[in-house]
């Protein structure tokens, strides 16, 4: 027991990876040793989407109590639809399509920050109401959208490099960038400082408003990246493509060991938690257990994690 404590406090991501490994082990066991490698590849490919949105949500949650972005699913859907419509199946239009989708993300993030900053809306309500608007825009814009992604994008999104799915490589690079940004740049340090104590950060010369603005924009930007990749990966955009990412994005942050009270982010944990969530689903599917048990278990795990790690919030 005493030996566990340094592990859990010093390296909180350890547990999410241990859990992911455990789920993988059980999965392989149930498959009688077959398909171990395929399971990993599939997990990497699907977990990558969780990771991309999870990183954005993590930075927002790290900004401190009350900060959360509920507009992620709407942004994923809208940017997926916009990308598909602008590309219109043409390889030549991939770049404009991607840029248009990313512009949507930046615009929504900026709008969120405007509501929070100018109207003093609590972030949860600001992102909720903007997500209502964005969702409607996506429905209206994407109605009857039957456009296949351009072949080149589809090929890219499903391709592999040395057997590793390309989107997983992208998500690893993105995670590494975010990790370096949080620890080694003035912006990243400012995010962590604001999350621990916004007033002290202001008094230490941090531009709190600017830091918050950049963070919400980055979060929406990551969601739009996820939207484009997801549309390319799954052969087109659909109106419910973002649905599961609201709860998942928060869940991977919590399970990954970032502090929900803010100020402490955990980038490797996002990967561990995303792999774990996917492998848990695969494992339970293999066992023939239905979606019900899977959802219930996911929920209980989130609550267990927060209950065990929750003591820290009471320090303040």
């Amino acid at each position: 027991m005493t030996r566990c404590i340094p592990l859990s406090t010093g390296k909180p991501w350890f547990w999410s990876f241990a859990a992911a490994f455990g789920a993988w082990g059980l999965l392989v066991l149930f498959l009688n040793g077959r398909g171990a490698e395929e399971a990993i590849t599939a997990a990497l490919a699907f977990a990558a989407f969780f990771v991309i949105v999870g990183l954005g949500q993590m930075m927002v949650i790290t900004l401190g109590p009350g900060n959360i972005d509920l507009s992620i699913p709407a942004v994923i859907t809208l940017s997926g639809c916009v990308a598909m419509r602008v590309m219109n199946g043409q390889d030549a239009a991939i770049l404009p399509g991607v840029l248009a989708a990313l512009a949507c993300g930046v615009a929504v993030g900026g709008f969120n920050n405007l509501l929070i900053h100018l109207l003093r809306m609590p972030p949860i309500i600001a992102t909720l109401s903007s997500s209502f608007l964005v969702q409607s825009a996506a429905i209206s814009y994407g109605r009857g959208l039957q456009v296949q992604p351009p072949q080149a994008l589809q090929d890219f999104a499903t391709s592999r490099l040395y057997g590793i799915p390309i989107n997983a490589i992208f998500a690893v690079l993105l995670a590494a960038t975010v990790g370096v940004m949080l620890t080694r740049t003035v912006y990243g340090r400012s995010v962590l400082a604001v999350g621990q104590n916004a007033r002290a950060a202001w008094l230490a010369g941090v531009h709190v408003g600017l830091v918050r603005c950049v963070t919400y924009v980055l979060c929406a930007l990551f969601a739009s990246v996820c939207g484009v990749l997801l549309a390319g990966f799954s052969g087109g955009a659909s109106l419910d493509m973002g649905q599961e990412y609201l709860l998942a994005s928060i869940a991977v942050v919590v399970i990954g060991g970032s502090s929900v009270a803010g100020g402490r982010a955990n980038v490797p944990g996002i990967w561990g938690a995303s792999l774990f969530l996917f492998l848990l689903v695969s494992m339970l599917n293999t066992l023939g257990l239905g979606a019900g048990i899977r959802l219930t278990l996911t929920g209980l795990i989130i609550i267990a994690v927060i209950t065990l790690a929750g003591g820290e919030t009471s320090q303040r």
């Binding site: 621990q196 104590n197 002290a200």
Partner: peptide
């Protein structure tokens, strides 16, 4: 505690 320290750092 209120104005100065960043406790997790």
């Amino acid at each position: 505690q209120r104005d100065g320290i960043f406790p997790q750092w």
